[in-house]
Design a protein around this nucleic acid. Structure first.
Lengths: 236, 236
DNA sequence: TCTCAACTGTGCACTGAGTGCCACTGACCT
DNA sequence: AGGTCAGTGGCACTCAGTGCACAGTTGAGA
């Protein structure tokens, strides 16, 4: 209590102080070996205050996902009909990457933690699921009326999330070295190329001998190239 | 009564009695309003015995998933090189559907329960995640050496699971009416059409500093072409 | 038959997460 | 002054889950 006055210097540090104290203890003696009482003792606050800021002990490990999810839904809600749907959800997924990239060291620490604590992994799944739901709901609205619109929305959302997480996790595994942006672009590109907008893809290949030649500038944006390839192949 | 299908050795009635008692109470007064003490009191057994059969209160809601997951990994482990990978994981996913279809009424009750209890939904996610991991691990092995093998494995596994769950849930939402098999076949067919067999395009070596030429067959899968373009552009 | 296991079911005490309620404190308003 | 109000802390409580010890059963083997 005596040294607690230093911890709460500014007004909103309560939440941040709890996160900092929690992570210090989690990294030093493990998540399950750390009780909420330990955290609040180190932060110099009352136990009841912890649950005022975090609904559960797990929430302190993901302090910024609630805001990020709100950002994503806001981003998707301002979409216009001109936006290509799959492109739009890929861009929305990049918002999550940006959040991770804002605090690389914190993100890496959290990754190591969640990787080895089953309870945290389960919690992370529920977080990821909410992102996926946001993407799927957006796509469902955009695909409304289309044949198998709901199915396609759910599958594409799942694929986008999986690709994003694949790139994100390989970046986290490398201690935040390298460019996470390009890795995610590459992964999302794979998904985007797999789910074009056409419905009748490769069932009929009558002119199988035909070839198409694409010439692209090396510094061209990848998706501009993809669009060209797509239209050149007659898929647009 | 009707459970005469002894796939395994005769199970002690203890476990089944606990499941029956639990579901009676869950349906009658809700999951969170039912304590473990209530369950064991109704089943007429000691409280400690509950946790001998189920590691947690949530596990009693998914009593057969552990066996189903074992079935799936066994199914995938006997795969031969002749099996087409995507086809194989789709068949593996159908094993889960079969388990649900074995007990339609139970599956529908559980679906309603998990839909409205956040804790159960989170638990279900961790269950589904293990299925997805099993599929992804199989595909990773099959795609070993291929470019972006891990990425493709993860994305396809996620897509297969999403398609399967989409069809499964719409079947559960209809109280188990209709044919779940055809719905799942249709959903998985969509995934297979998106990630089907590949035909490699050919990439010409870059002839100048700033352009790249790609020659692709018209019936080549779009993603395959994009991969070549990407690597040709130097975007590993 | 006796005995030594191994397994199953049970009771008990304990830890720790999460909640409800109330009392306190300081800021800000009138 | 008095008074509302939000943030905070303290306390007691419920309940999930665990460790431990003990009783009953079965099924060998001497």
């Amino acid at each position: 209590m005596s040294s607690s006055s230093a911890a709460q210097s500014a007004k909103p540090p309560m939440r941040d102080a709890l996160v900092a104290a929690a992570f210090r203890l989690f990294l030093e003696r493990g998540y399950e070996q750390t009780t909420v009482d330990d955290i609040v003792a180190l932060a110099g606050v009352g136990r009841r205050s912890f649950f005022r800021y975090f609904p559960s002990k797990e929430d302190v490990v993901f302090p910024d996902h609630e805001r990020c999810l709100a950002d994503m839904t806001a981003f998707l809600s301002v979409s216009e009909p001109g936006h290509e749907p799959v492109q739009r959800v890929c861009d929305a997924a990049r918002l999550v990457l940006r959040m991770y990239a804002e605090n690389p060291t914190f993100s890496v620490q959290r990754y190591r933690l969640t990787k080895q604590v089953p309870g945290l992994r389960a919690y992370e799944l529920s977080v990821v699921w909410r992102y996926e739901r946001a993407l799927a709901d957006y796509l469902r609205a955009r695909f409304a009326g289309r044949r198998d619109g709901i199915l396609r929305a759910d599958v594409i959302a799942a694929a986008v999330v999986a690709a994003h997480n694949n790139a994100l996790r390989s970046w986290l595994r490398s201690d935040g070295e390298g460019d996470a942006g390009t890795a995610v672009d590459h992964a999302l590109g794979y998904v985007q190329s797999a789910f074009g907008q056409d419905e009748s893809p490769r069932v009929a290949a009558p002119q199988a001998e035909d070839v198409v030649v694409v010439v692209a500038r090396r510094d061209a944006p990848l998706w501009r190239v993809v669009q060209e390839v797509e239209s050149a192949l007659g898929r647009a």
